[in-house]
Structures are given as structure tokens and as C-alpha cells.
Computed example of a mutant assay.
Amino acid sequence: MAVHHPATIAPTKRELLQAWVPRQPWTGGGDLTELTPVGSYRFDDPDGEVGMETHLLATPDGRVLQVPLTYRGTPGPPDTLVTTMTHTTLGDRWIHDGCHDPVLLTALATTVLHGGREADLDEATPDGLTLLPATTHVRGDGPTPGAPTHPGDWTHPHVEHTGTTTVVRAPRHNHGLRLVLPRVVHPVPVPGATLRGTWPGQDTPVVLAVLTPDPPPTP
């Protein structure tokens, strides 16, 4: 369960995404003058310390970009920092690129392998927590022939961008896994254990992440 705290935030999520996303190498170019939110999904941090949210953003030229972010109460790795945010309820927040954040990567791999889904989102009110309706839904494949059986250790991930795809590798001595995230999502079949999702306007599930064993390098 994730909790939304009503607050004033600066910059807003839309502002920070509009400023940061067009400068990234995985967008594929195109028209990025206006990024419109079409959905988002969250995972839970078992320790309750890190907020995790993946944003789905429509571009003026008809594409949908996938942007995982994490929200921390203390700074994470400085080279993965997107921006800082002032939150009137939670105080200062450090926003990080989720593809580099071990907490999000662990949650994503676990969701894929265990057949999990997005976290419920509750709103904190004076009368307690109120469940907010979800419009974006994701689901992991669960146990799949040939897929890994352990979510791995993502403490020191290695991140590469190739075109509009991000590949994240866990260290080989820590199970040697690979997460592949299409940053421009598209409804095509992808082999491996997957996370698939739907959102308003996208009723057919599309692949949002693939978890596979990381093959050894070619000699």
C-alpha cells in the first residue's frame, strides 16, 4: 500500500518531468514539447522509506514514454538525482532516476517473478486512509519456464541505454539478472518473464519490463 499525502509540492511532478525527460538519451527524439500524463503505477517499499512511481507520459507525436522515479527523504546516489522537491507535508524530498535505484529494481523484479501487481494507493485524510481508484494496472507473469527464480540483488546496478530501451544488469555474482525496460512502450510480444500494464486509452496489456538471466559475455 502506498500513501498519498495532500500537499503543495515544488516543483510539481509535471514540471520536473517536463524539465528532465527531454534531456534524456532514451526518448528517441521526436516532439517532446508537451508531456501529458496518461497513467502511473507504484510499488511498495517494505521498509516504508522510498516512494516509487512510474509515470506514463504521452507525447504530441503519439508515443507513450515510461519514466520510473523514486522519492526519498534523504539523498540517494548523487549521479542519479533528478531534482529536489519541497513537500509541505513530508518536507524536502530527493527525486531519483528509478532505473538506478535498488529499491525500485528489487520491487519490479519481485513483482514480475511472483505475479504481483501495482500497489494500492491510499490518501491520508483527517479521518484516516481512503483508497483511491486506480486507472493504471500492472501484473507480473509469475513463475515462467526458463525465467529466473530469484529477484536478485540490485545494490550496484549497471544501467545502459540503447535507443529507446534501458537495460539494467545486476552484478553477475548476485544472480546475474537483466531487466529490460522499453522507455517508449509499444504492444509487441517480448520473450521472458514480463510486467504488463494497461491504462486509460490502452486496454490491451503492453510489456513494461522483462526479466531474464543475463547471458555471459561473448569471449
Rank of each mutant, 00 (worst) to 15 (best):
A107P: 03
V168A: 09
P77M: 07
R93Q: 14
G28Q: 08
P78G: 10
T125W: 13
H114F: 01
D141N: 05
P102D: 00
L131F: 09
P145Y: 07
G29S: 10
V112M: 07
H175L: 12
G62M: 11
G28K: 01
T162E: 08
T110Q: 00
Q18R: 08
G115I: 07
D101F: 09
E53V: 13
D214E: 09
G98K: 11
A134S: 15
G98N: 10
T166Y: 00
P6Q: 03
T54L: 04
L17C: 03
P182W: 04
P213F: 12
L113S: 10
Y41I: 04
T88M: 02
A124S: 14
V67P: 01
T12S: 14
P75T: 08
V38G: 07
T198Y: 04
G128S: 12
R178S: 03
T59C: 11
P133Y: 13
A170V: 10
L129V: 05
V184H: 00
D122L: 14
D61G: 09
T33R: 03
A119C: 08
R63A: 12
P191A: 12
H161V: 12
P148Q: 07
M52A: 11
P187Y: 07
L108K: 05
G48T: 07
V21G: 02
G116F: 10
A58Y: 12
C99M: 14
P145D: 08
L90R: 13
L108D: 06
L195Y: 03
A10M: 06
R139I: 02
L181D: 02
T165W: 06
E118M: 07
V138L: 06
H4T: 09
P37H: 02
P22M: 06
G51I: 08
L65F: 08
D153R: 10
T8Y: 11
G163T: 05
T166L: 02
A170S: 15
H87N: 14
L131A: 15
V190E: 08
D45F: 11
T136R: 00
V38F: 07
D214W: 05
M85I: 08
P46I: 09
T130C: 04
T88I: 02
L81T: 05
V168Y: 05
G73P: 03
E49I: 11
G91A: 05
L108I: 13
L65M: 12
L121E: 14
P102V: 10
P102A: 09
D31K: 10
G201F: 03
P68V: 06
P46R: 11
L113H: 00
D61W: 07
R117E: 15
P182G: 05
T36W: 02
T136E: 04
D141A: 15
G128E: 06
L17S: 01
H150V: 14
L56T: 10
R117N: 12
A10I: 03
D141P: 05
G62T: 10
G116D: 10
G152F: 09
H175C: 08
T8D: 13
V184T: 05
T33N: 01
D122T: 09
T54K: 07
P216L: 13
V188Y: 03
L56G: 08
G146Q: 13
D79T: 04
G146A: 13
D141S: 15
P145I: 05
L65Q: 11
W26Y: 14
R42N: 15
L56C: 12
T194G: 01
D101P: 02
T166G: 01
P77A: 15
V3Q: 12
R139Y: 01
D120G: 15
T106D: 14
P219Q: 08
H96G: 04
A170G: 14
